[in-house]
């Protein structure tokens, strides 16, 4: 029970609340809100500030921002989660094998990873997206590939550390095979770092999607994503700042929640981070 106590601090409560809210919205909103609410245009009410009819105002095409933001949640969360999952699927085995076996394999793999790390993640994602043609799936692939090197390197570091622990040696001398050692001993002990890092990566993935869409190389209309909404608001910053602030705040709150949650998760799962 004392584990749960650690979540009950300022950061933890806010973090969990925000994350839960966002997840709820992402899952429930598409079920409750009919899709036309976000796409119907009311040209007479275009660029109107928040009022009773439109709780968060309207954009340049007269679309209700409140509903757009709610429905956009699903797109953004979907992209971020898929991208992080993808980077895990590639990066986890890579890092594990590299860190556990060490030697030549490790040298070669890490040389490759380090080279990839010289490319800024956003640049990689942009290039891949441009190369493949920007759409929803390719945005996922682009962000997923861009995040893989960092994750792989982190996991490799942890796997290396755990592989040298006495309990792994003890298990080896009691007859365990390599696969049993990796899956039964190394993997459970690197999970805390993987979980924390995944949470933080989710936050960055949302930011990345926003950035990509902002530049026009991410999700494309008619999909509604937060990044696209910010991009659309660029020309109207003077007259209607809320068109940028509404989606921007949505991104900010989600990322904030994820970061806080990840921080508290780190304190709980990895006592080494406490000095």
């Amino acid at each position: 029970m004392s584990i749960f106590k650690k979540f009950l601090n300022f950061k933890g409560i806010i973090g969990i609340t925000l994350v839960l809210c966002v997840i709820l919205i992402a899952v429930l909103a598409p079920l409750i809100i009919p899709p036309e609410f976000a796409t119907r245009m009311d040209m007479r009410a275009r660029l109107s500030p928040p009022n009773m009819a439109h709780w968060m105002g309207t954009d340049q095409l007269g679309r209700d921002l409140f509903y757009r933001v709610m429905l956009g949640a699903r797109t953004s969360i979907n992209i971020a989660t898929s991208a992080v999952l993808m980077s895990l699927v590639i990066g986890l085995p890579l890092g594990l094998i590299s860190g556990y076996f060490g030697g030549r394999t490790d040298n070669v793999l890490m040389r490759l990873v380090d080279t990839l790390l010289s490319f800024p993640a956003l640049l990689l994602a942009l290039t891949i997206s441009a190369v493949l043609g920007p759409n929803l799936q390719n945005t996922i692939i682009a962000i997923g590939i861009a995040f893989t090197p960092y994750l792989a390197r982190l996991i490799r570091g942890e796997a290396l550390r755990v592989a040298q622990m006495p309990y792994v040696e003890a298990a080896r001398s009691s007859g365990a095979t390599n696969s049993r050692l990796i899956i039964g001993h190394v993997l459970p002990n690197i999970m805390p770092v993987v979980i924390v890092q995944s949470t933080i990566s989710l936050a960055f993935a949302i930011l990345a999607e926003a950035g990509l869409s902002f530049l026009g190389l991410g999700t494309q209309p008619p999909e509604a994503s937060w990044g696209l909404m910010i991009q659309a608001s660029r020309d109207y910053l003077d007259r209607a700042p809320w068109t940028a602030l509404v989606p921007g705040t949505a991104v900010a709150l989600t990322v904030l929640g994820l970061n806080m949650f990840g921080d508290v998760l780190r304190d709980v799962l990895d006592p080494r981070s406490q000095s």
Partner: peptide, 11 residues
């Protein structure tokens, strides 16, 4: 082994 804290898998 020597270190009782590191010779058992914590998980």
């Amino acid at each position: 082994f020597q270190d009782p804290y590191a010779s058992l898998n914590p998980y």
